[in-house]
Simulated assay, not measured.
Amino acid sequence: MALTDRTDNKKTQILIVSMNDRARRELQNGLSALGYECYTCSDGESALGLMKQRLFDVVITSAELLGMSGIQLARAISRIHPHMPIIMTSLRPDPAQIPQALASGACDLIGEMCSAEEFRAIIERNLDRRAAANRRIASDRADILFKAICAMTAAIDAKSHYAARHSYRVTQLCMMIGSRLGLSEQQRLTLELAAQIHDIGKVGTPDTVLTKPDVLTDEEWVDVLKHPALGGAFLANVPELVEIASVIRHHHEHFDGTGYPDGLQGEAIPLFARIIAVADAYDAMTSDRPYRKAMTHEQAAEELRRNSGTQFDGELVEHLLAALTEKSAERRAA
């Protein structure tokens, strides 16, 4: 199964990080001429900042950087995007560097002065490798994992009367959005899995918080806010689920960059995470809580639209509301 959220024919997005101005410029020009869309930074801190604003397909970073080293940058990227292919370069590649580079999350260590054609071969090899690994999610092992994790999620939902079948409803809403986006069958399967287990990180949330029949305190909210990062960390250790781990980690990011845990914004947030954010919020608003009654559809729709462009991707909000309107019309006609 291809676990990509790229639904169009956009160019492959590459981030190049090097303090060598000439090498950085020459590589950008060479790869751009080969059809890649390239962005550049001279240091690791700037690269991480740019990655909060854009979603890249590949990162090429020099091992020799000022401030944050290339090894430290690779570790930081791998923590946020476990599936991201990272190609590390060095002015003087040393075989002794390879174990450290691979341990940091890099998939290759090569000479910084390789030609653009050589870089293209390495980029495509790593993209093919990632695609092949992603397809393994359709294997028997992934199916077993899926069932086991869904059982865990159902157990979490069952802890609270008010959360009962929440994951199921969110999944149905996500699939409605996915249908309107024209996702492929593989993408729909990926979205379905991510939606089913989006709250898996709540296995680390105290039962007293999950079952509390009242408004949470600030301290209890801190426990709740940890669940996306915890869920992503759980799944990042399963090779077949690393892309879904990124979706789950980021399903509480806000479109304007004010969400958590990493403050990503806009299209830097994985598409499936943006879809889940809208569906999750709609279900939460239209479900009863001990401290408030459920909103009507009209009230929830107004709230989603009011937060479009800030908390939510406005295009996805409109897709969900249009799908719900169509479903309501079908029910009335039946």
Results as ranks from 00 to 15, higher is better:
Ala2Ile: 10
Thr4Ile: 05
Thr4Lys: 08
Asp5Lys: 01
Thr7Ala: 02
Thr7Asp: 01
Lys11Leu: 11
Thr12Arg: 13
Gln13Leu: 08
Ile16Phe: 14
Ile16Arg: 11
Val17Pro: 03
Asp21Tyr: 11
Arg24Val: 00
Arg25Met: 14
Glu26Asp: 11
Gln28Ile: 03
Leu34Lys: 12
Gly35Ile: 07
Gly35Lys: 11
Tyr39Val: 10
Thr40Tyr: 01
Gly44His: 09
Ser46Thr: 14
Gly49Lys: 07
Lys52Arg: 14
Arg54Met: 09
Phe56Ala: 04
Asp57Gln: 04
Val58Met: 05
Glu64Tyr: 13
Glu64Cys: 06
Gly67Cys: 05
Met68Asp: 04
Gly70Val: 03
Gln72Tyr: 07
Gln72Leu: 06
Arg75Phe: 05
Ala76Ser: 13
Ala76Gly: 00
Ala76Val: 02
Ile77Glu: 03
Arg79Asn: 06
Pro82Asn: 00
His83Ile: 01
Ile86Ser: 06
Met88Phe: 02
Thr89Gly: 08
Ser90Glu: 10
Ser90Gly: 06
Leu91Cys: 13
Asp94Thr: 08
Asp94Arg: 12
Gln97Leu: 12
Pro99Trp: 06
Ala101Val: 13
Leu102Met: 15
Leu102Thr: 11
Ser104Ile: 02
Ser104Glu: 00
Gly105Ile: 04
Ile110Phe: 04
Gly111Val: 04
Glu112Gln: 15
Cys114Asn: 13
Ser115Ile: 10
Ala116Met: 08
Glu117Phe: 11
Glu118Thr: 14
Phe119Cys: 01
Arg120Asn: 10
Ile123Ala: 10
Arg125Val: 01
Asn126Val: 00
Ala132Thr: 11
Ala132Cys: 04
Ala132Met: 09
Ile137Lys: 06
Ile137Cys: 07
Ala138Ser: 12
Asp143Lys: 15
Ile144Val: 14
Lys147Gly: 02
Ala148Tyr: 10
Ile156Arg: 01
Lys159Tyr: 11
Lys159Ser: 11
Ser160Pro: 08
Ala163Trp: 03
Ala164His: 14
Ser167Pro: 09
Tyr168Met: 12
Arg169Asn: 12
Gln172Val: 08
Met176Ala: 15
Leu181Gln: 13
Leu181Val: 07
Gly182Phe: 09
Gln186Arg: 13
Ala194Tyr: 04
Ala195Pro: 06
Ile200Met: 05
Pro206Tyr: 01
Lys212Met: 00
Val215Glu: 10
Leu216Gln: 10
Thr217Ser: 11
Asp218Met: 03
Val224Glu: 06
Pro228Lys: 01
Ala229Thr: 02
Leu230Lys: 09
Gly231Asp: 05
Gly231Lys: 07
Phe234Tyr: 13
Ala236Cys: 01
Val238His: 05
Glu243Thr: 05
Val247Arg: 00
Ile248Arg: 08
Arg249Phe: 01
Gly259Tyr: 02
Leu264Val: 07
Gln265Ala: 14
Gln265Cys: 10
Gly266Leu: 03
Glu267Val: 06
Leu271Asn: 00
Ala273Pro: 03
Ile275Met: 09
Ala277Phe: 01
Ala279Met: 09
Tyr282Phe: 15
Asp283Ser: 08
Asp283Asn: 12
Ser287Arg: 15
Ser287Gly: 09
Arg289His: 14
Arg289Tyr: 03
Pro290Lys: 09
Arg292Tyr: 01
Arg292His: 08
Lys293Ser: 12
Ala301Cys: 06
Glu302Ile: 00
Leu304Arg: 04
Arg306Tyr: 05
Ser308Gln: 10
Gln311Ile: 06
Gln311Pro: 00
Asp313His: 13
Asp313Asn: 15
Gly314Thr: 01
Leu316Ala: 02
Leu320Glu: 03
Leu321Trp: 04
Ala323His: 06
Leu324Phe: 08
Glu326Asp: 15
Glu326Leu: 13
